[in-house]
Simulated scan of single mutants.
Amino acid sequence: MSSIADNLGSVTRRIQKATLQAGREPDSVKLLAVSKTRSPEELREAVTAGQRAFGENYLQEALDKIAALDDLTDIDWHFIGPIQSNKTRQIASAFSWVHSVDRLKVARRLSEQRESGLPPLNICLQVNINNEQSKSGCQPEDLPELVSEISQLPGLTLRGLMAIPDPEQAESALRASFRKLTNTLKELRQKYPEAGPLDTLSMGMSGDLEMAIAEGATWVRIGTAVFGERPSKS
């Protein structure tokens, strides 16, 4: 059985190869280790192997891990799950990135509740790129208004877009979904140059990271390929 360190090395090589093949700068794609349901001990093993950025989907589980690993001061915590309005205060305090903002109400609450002593909270707008009823995310046509409004909120830095395309699509359709998100970000950057860096595309997972990188991903969210298959629930 491969160790987490071995898995991280393998994933890092995949990212580097895909980045090179896409003709992109060597350090232009970052690995976000998706650590939902994983134990603090597994995260500590990943940190020992050099991983620093972790993505969490469930708030209370994440807060428990943050507390358990509070001796590790250089972990970069990203919230990537659906956001309930009554949970924004803890998210605003505990994380440095939020990839899953999909409505103005949530962004306003994160802005209001981000402590003044902390650096601005990096946020991505989650886009329901394939219009799936089962998934969170705003519609692409709602993005201009959201970008215009959210970019004016204090305590936040609007970094870009996130999407979870339907993995059951044909490869050509999946690639088109990634490309659509990339083109959408380019259009927003041109239309709203004052909105923020708009330099981030959070897309791609264990099975399709090469395709996502070829189409412009800057963060790839990798769980299984780093930590192995999740144990089945009893």
Rank of each mutant, 00 (worst) to 15 (best):
N130Q: 00
L43M: 15
D27H: 11
S111C: 04
L153W: 09
N57I: 14
Q21R: 11
G160Q: 03
E141G: 02
Q51Y: 08
L156V: 08
F95E: 08
P144D: 06
E41Q: 14
G55A: 07
A107D: 02
L201N: 02
N7E: 07
G196E: 06
V147P: 02
P40L: 06
R175K: 11
M205P: 02
Q16Y: 01
D208R: 04
R13D: 13
L104G: 04
E61D: 14
G23L: 14
L188G: 04
Q113V: 07
N130S: 02
A46D: 11
Q169F: 04
E25R: 15
E168G: 11
S111L: 03
T157Q: 10
D71K: 03
D64C: 01
A53S: 14
S172A: 09
K180S: 12
D208G: 02
L188W: 07
E210C: 05
S39D: 09
A46V: 10
E141H: 14
K30V: 08
Q51I: 13
R44S: 13
Q16K: 03
T73R: 12
P231R: 05
P154D: 09
E115H: 13
S85D: 08
N130F: 00
K191T: 13
Q126N: 04
I150E: 01
L32Q: 11
A107R: 02
S2L: 14
L72V: 14
L63W: 04
V127F: 00
N57W: 06
P154Q: 09
E141Q: 14
P165M: 00
P193Q: 13
E61S: 10
N128M: 03
L146V: 05
P193F: 12
S35Y: 06
A53L: 14
M1Q: 12
